[in-house]
Computed example of a mutant assay.
Amino acid sequence: MSEPVRILLVDDQELIRVGFRLVLESEPDLVVVGEAGDGESAVAEARLLRPDVVLMDVRMPRLDGIRATERILAELPQTRVLVLTTFDLDEYAFGALDAGASGFLLKDAQRAELVGAVRAVHRGDAVLAPRVTRRVIERLGPASAPPTGPDPDVVLTERERDVFDGIARGLTNAEIARELFLGESTVKTHVGRVLAKLEARDRIHAVILAHQWAQAARPGENG
């Protein structure tokens, strides 16, 4: 059996940390190794515990989640940060994505969403709450902006374009694998090739590029 995913909970509200701990530790493959109530403590705990995943609040005393995310990822690039926010228009959450977080989740997410998100970012997927994907695209790279980098229709194989379409729709590797009748490891390989060929920083950047290229293919809708 593989080692459980080691999680650090960061939130300035103790009751929220308690609730998340109860949900996460009911899963056999997840374990909470530590907690922090502010950004400074989060950085210190991450440095000490080296967690696989950090669930990071954004609005906290001493040091906010954006700065904490930057510092943790600078020291621990293998650690994944999943940002937690109360509001889907929270500019702080967008800032955390800029800082290198693997995505964000709303605090009112259902139990299965929370557990699934932790597992997804640990596998290397990006996680965006579906109802905020459009806002993320608008914040980080408007769909109306000219697309940058290589044209997907030129540089990607047919199968890679299928995978790229799945990424654009916010699907995880497992969901893409089921849809295309492929093994998850095969999808992971395709994802790596897609990101490299499109010169995308990460999956979130790939989502932005997909929407930009789609908009470029429909120029009449911009005017």
Rank of each mutant, 00 (worst) to 15 (best):
D202P: 01
L180D: 08
I167F: 00
A126K: 02
R111A: 12
F20R: 11
D151Y: 08
R59S: 10
G34Q: 13
T148S: 08
L195M: 02
N222W: 13
F94E: 02
E199Y: 00
I176P: 00
P219G: 09
P4Q: 06
L140F: 00
D165A: 14
R17P: 08
T148L: 09
D98H: 08
L209V: 00
R131W: 06
V5Q: 05
L15K: 14
M56F: 09
Q13K: 11
V54K: 12
K188H: 11
S26L: 13
R80Y: 06
T189L: 08
E25S: 10
R218L: 14
V154H: 11
I204M: 06
T79N: 05
L156A: 08
R178M: 13
A177Q: 04
A145V: 00
P147S: 06
R159A: 14
E179L: 10
F164C: 02
Q215T: 14
D98A: 08
W213C: 10
A101D: 01
G95Y: 01
V132T: 13
D11C: 07
P51E: 13
K107Q: 12
V132H: 10
R203W: 01
S2Q: 05
A126G: 07
D202G: 00
A68W: 04
L55A: 08
E75I: 05
R139M: 12
T157V: 05
L15F: 15
A129D: 12
E138P: 05
H211N: 14
A74G: 12
T69M: 02
V118S: 04
Q13C: 11
G34S: 14
V32Q: 07
P142V: 01
G34C: 15
A120L: 02
F20I: 10
P146R: 06
V43P: 12
V121H: 09
V136P: 05
D38T: 03
D64F: 07
Q110E: 15
S102G: 00
G37D: 14
D162H: 10
R17K: 13
R139F: 09
V163Y: 09
A74R: 07
D125I: 03
T186F: 07
R123C: 11
G149D: 00
P152Y: 03
V18S: 11
N173K: 12
T133K: 15
L48E: 15
R59L: 09
D151I: 05
S185C: 10
D57W: 06
L84K: 00
L48D: 15
L9A: 09
I66F: 03
R47Y: 11
I72Y: 01
A36D: 08
A217D: 12
P147K: 04
V31M: 15
E45K: 14
G170Q: 01
R50V: 15
R80I: 02
V194R: 07
D108W: 08
V154M: 06
R50D: 14
E3G: 09
